[in-house]
């Protein structure tokens, strides 16, 4: 049996403080105060379900758990990359750009 499987984890937000920032130029950022449980490879936006998911190469994925308004959705459709910022006491500890994949299932 293959050791590879898709694994859906509980919402990323859960006990974390998490913020999603979007502007009308398609710039998107997610701030969080606890490290992700896995190495994020890309971020997916399901425009129909209005859900953002963090995805790892190993097949783990996690719904962000933040609600997305229609205004935000329009701006998210323009995005091609997303800034993930690990924040402690309002100071950025580290941040990285990741590909942002929009799907319309």
């Amino acid at each position: 049996m293959s050791g590879f499987s898709f694994q859906e984890l509980e919402d990323f937000r859960g006990e974390r403080k998490t913020a999603l920032l979007v502007n009308n130029e398609g710039k998107v950022a997610i701030c969080y105060d606890q490290k992700p449980e896995f190495d994020i490879s890309w971020v997916e936006f399901d425009s129909k379900a209005k859900k953002i998911s963090l995805v790892s190469e190993e097949g783990q994925y996690q719904n962000l758990g933040v609600s997305i308004s229609d205004d935000m959705k329009l701006n998210l459709l323009k995005a091609q990359e997303i800034l993930l910022a690990y924040v402690k006491n309002k100071e950025i500890i580290s941040c990285a750009l990741h590909p942002f994949v929009v799907s319309a299932n």
Partner: peptide, 18 residues
Amino acid sequence: DFKAAGDTDIVPKSLANI
């Protein structure tokens, strides 16, 4: 020009003066 969702009290000033 920004929309924000979630716990925006954690956003550092260097990322947003929202």
